[in-house]
Design a protein around this nucleic acid. Sequence first.
DNA 1: GTCGTACTTCGATATTCGTCGAACATCGAA
DNA 2: TTCGATGTTCGACGAATATCGAAGTACGAC
Lengths: 122, 122
Amino acid sequence: MAPREHPHPDLHEVELVTVLAALAEPTRLRIVRMLAAMEERERAWKDIDLPIARSTLSHHLKILRNAGLLWSRTEGTRCFVSLRDKEMEGRFPGLLECVLACQDSVDVPMAKGGVREDRAAS
Amino acid sequence: MAPREHPHPDLHEVELVTVLAALAEPTRLRIVRMLAAMEERERAWKDIDLPIARSTLSHHLKILRNAGLLWSRTEGTRCFVSLRDKEMEGRFPGLLECVLACQDSVDVPMAKGGVREDRAAS
DNA sequence: GTCGTACTTCGATATTCGTCGAACATCGAA
DNA sequence: TTCGATGTTCGACGAATATCGAAGTACGAC
């Protein structure tokens, strides 16, 4: 289907385990990190370049959306996603921040523009 | 088997996804919260009172241990577990703290002493 | 209207995970 | 040494999950 307007949960109704489960998957964590590392606050669905099928990507984005982690916006037949980091900070203070700050093996080698070199290098 | 000395991972080798996955399960999150809410820093294995089989509990404790979240110590035939919160703070600054601080539906109604009333009430 | 693009949903599959009871291993006590 | 207590491991099971390709749906362009 075309990107029909998706339901976005009220963050007050999102449970911590849901958020943790959403983040506890390498591909999804990578997506979150990529969105956080961008200069623009939005990323075009089409430009999310990962070695997975598009249907799988759609699946992961849905899980992140249901966990309150990202916002998707429709523009014609296209879709743009962005982190709900401000809201998440209100609901789970410090969580997203420390997840993003942490250094581990899940990197952000996602081409097609938007990756900040300065962050990637630190 | 009796509580043979278990392997505890070096926290530098523990990945964020491993920790998140360990925490992203209601029973395990409950165990972590219970350990954090205790006055004594240790809890006897035997006194962890949850509505699950003992083999299941053993399984969950192993996952938490492998994620670097808890430490288990053997004393004769008994076992005592405690949070590795200080070390986790060094590896993933702020993570455990904000997970414990967050308010959601996973409570800590675990009897047999050790639950702090002041925390439970806040 | 017809076609193509852009996502989403469906159905199928393989893997992982939570759970249990039973069997096992280790220690202390009798 | 025999017994009981204490955890752990094993084997099995159903449920959940990550993945894909194919089919479907909505929109813009022509």
